[in-house]
Design a protein around this nucleic acid. Structure first.
Lengths: 332, 332
DNA sequence: TTGTAAGCGTTATCAT
DNA sequence: ATGATAACGCTTACAA
């Protein structure tokens, strides 16, 4: 790999001149500029990013820390974030914590030691610990998709209460009165928010969401199967189900079909996230979209803003939307 | 962020001594060792990886270049590769080329400029160009999942012919005689290999795979829908289908169901890859697994071997396996 | 065993 | 407009 020194020698200038033509911030004679460019071409020279990063204290990279790689919703966000980051000429490093606080800490440490320009996190496992590390290093941080107790950090989140409202309105609007809900872990605030929006809105339609009809899952595939097993073995009656994510909705669908319960003829089923799989199953799934693209774009923008002129933290709230497909229909 | 200098000052030693206790390669007095460690703890010092990488010409990172992030099969590989790379104390940078040779080139360049220790690629869009760049930089490379024309680069691939054999044996064993196949792009060698294994094996069972029964898809979701539309509108008869990946199998399944064709009662359907979605649809999909974990492990190992002592390129071939689920059954 | 100093490839400050 | 030179934070001969 050629270095600036090689370019300088070939162009018969000093390395500082080479640096100047590359960074084009300081005026340089047109003639020498051309000579230098010639040498760069000829040697196929590309500046070393470690040297640059070391010097200017910017690794030209953004870190993204997630708890799990195989989760479709995360993949969605990652792919958008990557797009926007690359657009800015930076590179994205994705760190997978496997829900392990120690790995999480090592990962964030590793990023900081590479002079990251910003870190985006989703679902930190140990808020206080992680944020303390980041805080100290003065790296811009944005939390995506999860409201943190800590107030001193920027975040972009979904209006999860609203999602519950939308689900309830849709099902109530179709005339369903016996309704069930498969939730995510209720120690997570966003799950409680969704549930509250759902319950409150049903109540305002004079529909009661009975406690027994709420099954607390964990957002994983198996929860949908377990939920249906629970409902059926306890003779719980319902004509509509809202699962708080598509993964659980899809497995609930499978369990229903296997129990000869027709969707949507016998029960209406809706999910949330609008993963690709929602369109792939039969019947295709009515669901609630999260504006993943918008969330990602916003997160990246906040990072670069904070980098340019450190300002107050920002909290952005985005809106969910209803997508009607084949898995819900009018109550007979 | 504290630097070695700070540690050295606090421990009252020179920075080279600090370096020695950290890298523990050169003997250092037990007393000073403890003093230095004390200082490190106290300052919470962590070596800067850019400085280290610049000096020792190793960015402590592995690059992984893929054409598309949202593809479940790639995600599978990425997540395993990440696991093994992190295990070695390195970090993984995933670059998404969007099937664009220019982005691909920029990405690989970017990696090299960060002193990557190795690059894993899958599906390069412009073989000659990419490999030329990599070759020149002397970075260890492994191609995963795709046989390259170029012989001078290591690779780990699947025995794709064997996959076709397995599919044919399974379907023929169930008594199917009218068979169809939805392939990936046939300009890709692995697709031709799979098809040849399939066809040859059927033939040895005295079953003819008619040209009209072969639908060339592109491995994407829509291909399955299009294939079924093609078969039905051309009155092509079949009691079994092999789709060369699960994504197309899943959409074929959806199309069949929508056309009131029962799987597996009316037609048996099998896929390939064993994605999670194969278990999620109803009926769950009989498929052929690729040993993604094994492939990933091997790829990472080759990288680190080559890094330690550059040797001859390695070509590793791994075997596919049959997974029988609910979408195939005996021909009536 | 420990310290001094050169060097990795940049950028930035200061002269010229 | 250009060139020396120090500095970024680390490793590694070479001396002591």
């Amino acid at each position: 790999m050629p270095s600036m020194k090689d370019v300088a020698r070939l162009a018969k200038v000093s390395i500082s001149t080479v640096s100047r033509v590359i960074n084009q911030n300081i005026p340089v004679d047109e003639n020498t500029r051309l000579r230098v460019h010639g040498a760069i071409e000829k040697l196929n020279y590309k500046p070393n990013l470690l040297a640059k990063g070391l010097r200017v204290k910017s690794g030209q990279l953004i870190g993204f820390v997630i708890p799990e790689l195989k989760h479709p919703a995360f993949i969605n966000i990652i792919s958008y974030v990557e797009e926007f980051v690359v657009e800015k000429g930076f590179i994205l490093i994705v760190g997978n914590t496997h829900y392990d606080p120690d790995i999480e800490e090592r990962l964030i440490d590793n990023l900081i030691r590479r002079n990251v320009d910003g870190i985006i996190v989703t679902r930190v496992s140990d808020e206080s610990r992680v944020l303390k590390i980041i805080e100290k290093s003065r790296v811009p941080v944005v939390v995506i998709d999860r409201e943190l107790a800590l107030q001193e950090v920027s975040g972009v989140i979904l209006d999860n209460y609203k999602a519950g409202v939308i689900a309830a309105q849709h099902l109530a609007g179709l005339g369903h009165e016996k309704v069930a809900c498969i939730t995510g872990p209720l120690n997570i605030k966003l799950c409680r928010d969704r549930l509250n929006g759902f319950r409150d809105t049903l109540k305002s339609c004079r529909i009661e969401l009975r406690e027994n009809n709420i099954y607390e899952g964990d957002f994983k595939y198996e929860s949908g199967l377990e939920a249906i097993r629970y409902y059926l073995s306890n003779n719980i009656m319902f004509s509509a189900i809202w699962a708080q994510n598509d993964l659980m909705a899809v497995s609930a669908l499978k369990a229903l079909i296997e129990n000869k319960i027709k969707v949507p003829q016998d029960v209406s089923l809706m999910g949330m996230d609008d993963l690709e799989i929602a369109r792939m199953v039969t019947p295709s799934l009515t669901t609630i979209t999260q504006p993943f693209r918008e969330m990602s774009r916003t997160a990246v923008e906040i990072i670069f803003e904070q980098r340019a002129h450190p300002g107050p933290v920002q909290k952005i709230v985005l809106e969910p939307n209803l997508v009607i497909r084949d898995s819900t229909r009018y109550m007979k």
